[in-house]
């Protein structure tokens, strides 16, 4: 997408702020995500009218109303499919889908995986709060097994989706994760999504302070964060802990956590390579896994032709080979005869 950048006057956060009052619950993680998005977009140097935000239904899906760009708040689960039509109709647009764990992985799961499979050049921001907020607190497809909610008073029986693993399984060319409370990281991940040519999947851990407060505190609060989060950086060893005293190594083909010291040195630690699918799959498997830190950052990023780009190529190729279609020849095609 970067190569399609158009010159635009210097923009500020205000340029991306609509006149509509924001109506999320006070303290909701969505505020932070909105703020970081509005701060990051001016840095792209792109004309504002080229951005389109498409959402489905759910708390997160109100997002487009607050961005002063083109926006479409659609129906439950279908944002990804609607976004596909927007992108195919006009591939010059920068298309963003804002969805949640219910909208994007439950009712809209089918469209989400197919969007990623096709590598449609669309950016998915999946706000994952592991709960249904707008319908007031039922468990979601990312809620942990045994979750007690209004609809599961005796605990949920569903095993949760692992979103990055799902994205990798669907052959997404860009899979990343960030947190609502990590403003700088969130900004950098949004930028990475913008820069990536092809489809992107960014899971954003987002706190729902009303129905699932603290779901991600382990990764955001001071006392637990350092030993619970693995900050991924391409080309860097996978180390974590307050003093970077821990690392990930492969024992045969099984990952394990090691402590740097007498037995292990930083040289024993695995180095992150965003283009390595096997590595990315391994990192995805750390999700909510008590034996490992939570991977945050870009898990996977590779280049591949996007669907929208190939469609245009096909049209260009057909036009070159068959000539630009003429209505008259279309009407008069096939066997014809004349009645005098």
């Amino acid at each position: 997408m970067a190569e399609e950048q158009k010159t635009a006057p210097v923009q500020t956060r205000k340029d991306y702020t609509s006149d509509q009052g924001v109506r999320w619950c006070p303290g909701c993680g969505d505020y932070a995500i909105l703020a970081q998005t509005q701060k990051t977009f001016p840095t792209f140097g792109r004309k504002k009218e080229d951005f389109v935000f498409i959402s489905g239904i759910g708390c997160s899906s109100r997002f487009p109303y607050y961005m002063d760009t083109y926006g479409f708040h659609t129906i439950h689960g279908r944002a990804t499919a609607i976004a596909s039509g927007v992108k195919l109709a006009n591939p010059d647009l920068s298309v963003w889908v804002v969805t949640g764990d219910g909208d994007g992985l439950s009712i809209g799961g089918n469209h989400t995986i197919h969007l990623m499979r096709r590598n449609m050049d669309i950016n998915i921001l999946l706000f994952n709060n592991r709960i249904y907020g707008l319908t007031k607190g039922q468990y979601s497809p990312t809620s942990e097994l045994g979750k007690v909610t209004k609809s599961t008073p005796m605990g949920s029986l569903d095993r949760p989706f692992n979103p990055p693993a799902l994205a990798l399984g669907a052959d997404s060319t860009f899979v990343a994760r960030t947190l609502d409370r990590e403003t700088k990281h969130l900004q950098s991940m949004i930028s990475r999504c913008y820069e990536h040519k092809g489809g992107t999947f960014l899971e954003i851990y987002q706190n729902c302070n009303i129905f699932n407060d603290g779901a991600f505190f382990k990764y955001t609060e001071k006392d637990t964060k350092a030993q619970s989060v693995l900050w991924l950086e391409n080309g860097q060893p996978m180390m974590f802990g307050a003093e970077k005293e821990f690392g990930i190594r492969l024992n045969g083909n099984v990952p394990e956590v090691i402590e740097i010291g007498d037995k292990w040195t930083p040289d024993d630690v695995l180095v992150h390579d965003e283009t390595d699918f096997v590595l990315a799959s391994m990192l995805a498997s750390f999700t909510s896994n008590d034996d490992f830190p939570e991977p945050i950052g870009v898990l996977y990023s590779v280049d591949a032709p996007s669907y929208d780009e190939m469609l245009i190529d096909q049209i260009d190729g057909a036009t070159e080979k068959m000539g630009k279609g003429e209505l008259d020849s279309l009407l008069n095609a096939g066997d014809t005869w004349v009645v005098e």
Partner: peptide, 12 residues
């Protein structure tokens, strides 16, 4: 998704 994509294309 068939009609959804069409609605998106109409919007665009």
């Amino acid at each position: 998704a068939g009609i959804a994509s069409a609605i998106g294309a109409a919007f665009a």
